[in-house]
Every structure is written in structure tokens, then in C-alpha cells.
Design a protein around this nucleic acid. Structure first.
Lengths: 141, 141
DNA sequence: CAAAACGCTTGCAAAACGCAAGCAATTGGC
DNA sequence: GCCAATTGCTTGCGTTTTGCAAGCGTTTTG
């Protein structure tokens, strides 16, 4: 899988760069699953709320890995499994995801737990710091 | 054009809601053109950096209007033209777009002017407030 | 009054997506 | 040690979405 070089981009606009990397229907849902629900394996992503197809999931995991947003390792306890984790770049998407959540919450009824929303609204930076922290803790284990 | 009711959604997850509304390659680029470059007409969007096709542009403008993210009015000075503007919901996307810009800036070389990036990094809320303010001013005229 | 500008729509080929089936490697139960 | 089940895919194929070029109706300009 090739990495995307600047000259094959539609434009160098930062918003466009982000969209070319993550701007499809599924990539950010996978990131969400990892970041907020602690999902790590292919089957966990498959069985998440939105029912992604197997071939699309496979493709997106490869692209995310290629973009260095996630990394793939063998599960040391079960060689059939792979464990997918967010890289630094991936966790770094937290502020953006939080703003997405807050925008949706302002405009439509959603399933987000109201306490989480309240915490995000009260202090976004603190909420993001909490995500980072719990992520660091999880990665020690 | 029908509006999307909660029961035709893949899920009620706020991130999914946002993606179903704006999660394609073009919608957010149109919002960007309006928010940061003050573009307002079909041809201005067409001639923006990324070269969207005419049918896609037409379709996305309709969807954005249907989602009440933009609104369409006749140009009072030229009846051939329509003027598209962001609604409150649309301007409300500013924090999310700013986080997208900052994420891209952290990870790749982009075309974003460094002073603007600096201002965003220094105080995101102040930057967003500035966008809002200039938008309000523009809408008076 | 003819030519150009503007905002589309249409037709068609190419790409992406969605679903079901299949498959290799590994594991757990007997 | 063997066979069924689990895991993480790939393949085929029909449907949907996209991209490109051309055309069209309305309005404006020269």
C-alpha cells in the first residue's frame, strides 16, 4: 500500500488533507471505536453499531495503518488475532472528534450519554486530556 | 429532497450523525469555501482549488441546504445568480474545522498560512469568535 | 438582438460500495 | 492428534456513487 505524497493531492488545504485521509464514512467510526470504546480487534469493529462490510473494514484498517493513524500487532495470547491501536497521530484526533460530537449534539438528538456531553461542554481540553491519559494507561498494560 | 429522520440512520452516535450529514469528500470543502474564503456562488465553488464536478456540486448544495447548514437566496443584483450562505448551524462548524486544520498541520505539510495557524494554536476560542464576528458583520451588508 | 454568463441537468463510463460466500491459519474440546 | 469453531481476511458480483463532457433555459451585457 502506497503512502500519499503531496503531489497526488487535490490540494494542500489542511481541511482537504484531512478529508483525503479520513474523509469517508467509515474511517472515523473505527477511530471512534478505538478511542471511546476501547475496541481493538477486527471482529470488535465488525460488530460495532453501524455494520461495516468485511472487505471495507479490511481496506480501511490498511489505509489507517498506512497513514500511521493506527498500528497493527499480533495478539501475544492468540495468534489468530491482531490488535489494532491508535498511534499518537490517532489519539491526536480527539479534539476533532469532540467537536464533531458537540456539533451533532447541538443540532440533533443523539445517543451520546449526557454526562459525557456535559463533561465535554464544561471543559473540552480537560476532557481531551482525560482521553489521552486513559489511553496512556491502557497502553502500559 | 427529504430530510433524514433518526430511524433511517445507521446509528444515533453523534459522530455517525455528523458523518452522515457532512462525511463525504466535498461538503466540508464547500463549507470551508464559505467560511474562510467568503465564497457565495456556484461558480466560485466550482473554481475552488479542488475542481468539483458540476453535478456533484449541485447535489451537495441541495443536501447542505436540506440539512439547514446553508441557505440559498437569489442575488438581488443579478437574477442569474444565487447566493449561498452559512446558517447558524453552518457557522457552528467552525470549531470542528479549526481542529481539522490543526490536526493536518501537526501531521503534514499544508498550504495553510502560518499566521492563521499561529492564531488558531494560540487561542482556538478567540479564533472561532473572530470567524463568527466577521461572519455577523458580513451578513449585515 | 446576438453572445456570453450563470446555474444547473443529462448521459455514460469508471470507481467505490455492500453483500454473501469462501479460505488459510490458529485454537479449543474431545 | 483430530475436527469443529474462531479469526481475519479475499473474491465475485450486482448496485450505487462519482467524474467528465455536453447541453439547456434564463438572465444579462454589448
Amino acid at each position: 500500500m502506497k503512502e500519499k505524497t503531496p503531489d497526488m493531492r487535490r490540494s494542500g488545504c489542511p481541511i482537504n488533507v484531512m478529508l483525503e485521509t479520513l474523509g469517508d464514512t467509515w474511517s472515523l467510526l473505527i477511530v471512534r471505536d478505538m478511542m471511546f470504546f476501547g475496541r481493538t480487534t477486527y471482529n470488535e469493529f465488525l460488530n460495532a453499531g453501524e455494520k461495516i462490510a468485511t472487505n471495507i473494514l479490511s481496506d480501511r484498517l490498511q489505509r489507517l495503518e498506512c497513514a500511521e493513524i493506527i498500528e497493527k500487532r499480533r495478539d501475544p495470547d492468540d495468534a489468530r488475532k491482531f490488535i489494532y491501536r491508535l498511534t499518537e497521530r490517532g489519539i491526536d484526533l480527539a479534539p476533532m472528534l469532540v467537536e464533531m460530537i458537540l456539533w451533532s449534539d447541538r443540532n440533533e438528538k443523539t445517543d451520546a450519554p449526557s454526562e459525557a456531553i456535559k463533561a465535554m461542554k464544561k471543559d473540552r481540553d480537560a476532557f481531551v486530556a482525560g482521553v489521552r491519559k486513559s489511553w496512556a494507561k491502557g497502553n502500559q498494560a
